[in-house]
Design a protein around this nucleic acid. Structure first.
Ligand SMILES: [Zn+2]
Ligand SMILES: [Zn+2]
Ligand SMILES: [Zn+2]
Ligand SMILES: [Zn+2]
Lengths: 155, 155
DNA sequence: ATATCGGATGTTATATGTTATCATGCTTCT
DNA sequence: AGAAGCATGATAACATATAACATCCGATAT
């Protein structure tokens, strides 16, 4: 096999544009006030011809690879990244009352975590930081719970 | 209904002892080098008469309530707490190569997180902090992956 | 002792979340 | 046209988690 590599137009990276489904899903995530599960997404897409889980998961995979979406581990759900930045250290403040999720960044926390780990010879590649509690709006009031997951969901 | 409260022997807390199953599960978790999923546990307990998921989940619930075990959200698995202390803010360093999990505490990190949240009026009730990466032993060497989850599992 | 209550367990079935596999069609390069 | 690469579709399997209802048992209360 000759020709090790023809010039290659210009590219260098994953410049391939998002597919229709991928855009649609990112859109749904952006619209939503709260994280959506893969099934939530699937439900909303059924009417549009998407009817199998793998499609959704594949799209999510792509979006996360590109730093456009995040997975919330403690909820098994996904949100759009509000400030696409390619980072592995984002933190999330999840209100267990109203379900909203705020993406927060704090370099001090990042640094501290790095420190703590390094101190014991651990090399961090990815961190999951998820704070559960009550957001400003829900605090004070509303200590009776509505468990977030079933609030304002699927009519 | 009179008698607001008879003296009450001595108690103060949830002094009820763990059930046999609960002890057994805590034992299995302590023994294990790595987090075990609910189904891992169920597998190991089948020979002992436990044969349904709810039993396992219920026991785990109790153990976590008492601060004797933790759930690792990013793995859907559980570990014994190596220093029972009743805290909602523990951090875990998870080696994605050998699968070991170290429970680490750092009051500075805790404080920082509290700060960050408070700054935006968020009240934290529980934090999930899970660092993925490579432990000291696996670092440097072993960058070829074995994905941890399927290493040394169920022969 | 009898009634009662709460916690733990058993049993069954189901919901939710995730992945493997194979088939198909499209775009790009040769 | 043929080959390679990749996105999608479809079906099924697997993994994780909970609902609902019944039974059992030890601790209190009457
Ligand atoms: Zn982000
Ligand atoms: Zn809220
Ligand atoms: Zn602990
Ligand atoms: Zn390791």
């Amino acid at each position: 096999m000759p020709q090790p590599r023809p010039p290659l137009p210009a590219l260098a990276a994953p410049a391939r544009p998002l597919s229709a489904t991928q855009v649609r899903i990112l859109d749904l995530l952006s619209q939503a006030q709260r994280p959506l599960s893969a099934y939530d997404l699937l439900g909303k897409l059924r009417s549009e011809g998407v009817n199998a889980p793998p499609t959704v998961y594949r799209a999510l995979e792509r979006l996360m690879r590109e730093g456009l979406a995040h997975r919330i581990e403690s909820l098994n759900a996904f949100i759009a990244c509000n400030m696409p930045h390619h980072h592995d250290l984002a933190a999330f403040a999840i209100c267990d009352h109203c379900g909203t999720v705020a993406e927060v960044r704090d370099t001090d926390v990042e640094a501290r975590l790095g420190h703590v780990a390094a101190r014991s010879g651990f090399h961090v590649t990815k961190a999951t930081v998820e704070l559960h509690g009550h957001c400003a709006a829900c605090s004070g009031k509303a200590h009776g719970h509505a468990s977030a997951r079933e609030t304002g969901h699927t009519p």
